[in-house]
Simulated scan of single mutants.
Amino acid sequence: MISQDKQRRFEAELIDSYDEELEMELDDRMLDGEGTFTDEDRALRKMYFRELFRLQGELVKLQDWVVTTGHRLVVIFEGRDAAGKGGAIKRITQRLNPRVCRVAALPAPNNRERTQWYFQRYVTHLPAGGEIVLFDRSWYNRAGVERVMNFCTDEEYEEFFRSVPEFEKMLVRSGIQIIKYWFSITDDEQEVRFQARIQDPLKQWKLSPMDLESRRRWEAYTVAKEVMLQRSHIPEAPWWVVQAVDKKRARLNCMHHLLSQVPYHEIEHPAIDLPARVYNKDYSRQPVPGSIIVPEVY
Rank of each mutant, 00 (worst) to 15 (best):
S232I: 05
E166K: 15
V245W: 08
I293R: 08
P275V: 02
V60F: 07
E219Q: 13
R277E: 08
N280P: 03
G87I: 13
Y279W: 08
S174M: 10
I76H: 05
D32R: 15
Q243T: 06
P235C: 08
K206Y: 12
Y264H: 09
E168I: 11
Y279N: 06
K6M: 08
I89P: 08
I2T: 12
Y118K: 09
Q286L: 07
P98H: 00
V74S: 08
E191M: 09
S260E: 03
L258V: 01
V103G: 00
D81E: 11
L126C: 04
E158N: 13
V123L: 13
R50Y: 03
K281F: 04
G84M: 10
P289W: 00
T69S: 09
T115S: 15
Q286K: 11
S163M: 12
S291M: 06
L202G: 14
E159L: 15
L52I: 02
G290F: 10
R114M: 15
T38V: 10
V288E: 06
P287Y: 06
I76T: 08
F161H: 14
R249H: 08
Q116A: 15
D64Q: 10
G290D: 14
E131M: 00
D246Y: 09
D136C: 04
A220N: 03
N150E: 11
V288S: 05
T222M: 04
Q116C: 13
V75W: 00
R217F: 02
T93I: 05
C101A: 07
E159N: 15
E296A: 13
R50C: 03
Y181S: 02
E226T: 03
Q230E: 15
E189N: 02
D5N: 05
V294I: 09
A105C: 07
A43W: 12
D5G: 03
R42A: 11
L274K: 05
K225I: 05
A244T: 09
G87W: 10
W182Q: 01
L31D: 15
G144R: 04
D19M: 14
V294N: 03
N141T: 06
E51M: 06
C101K: 00
L14K: 11
E266Y: 03
R249Y: 06
A12G: 11
G87R: 10
S3E: 05
E40H: 13
V75Q: 00
Y221I: 03
D5R: 06
P98Q: 00
K6I: 12
R277H: 05
Y264E: 01
Y221T: 02
N150L: 07
A88W: 01
S284Y: 02
H71Q: 10
L26N: 13
A128S: 09
F49T: 04
G175D: 07
K61E: 10
K225N: 01
V172T: 14
L274P: 01
H125L: 05
E40T: 12
Q7C: 04
G79E: 01
L26H: 13
T68E: 13
Y157H: 15
S208D: 08
F10S: 07
P263E: 08
A43F: 10
R45H: 13
Q204P: 03
A128K: 11
L258G: 01
R249W: 11
R72Q: 14
D188W: 04
G175N: 10
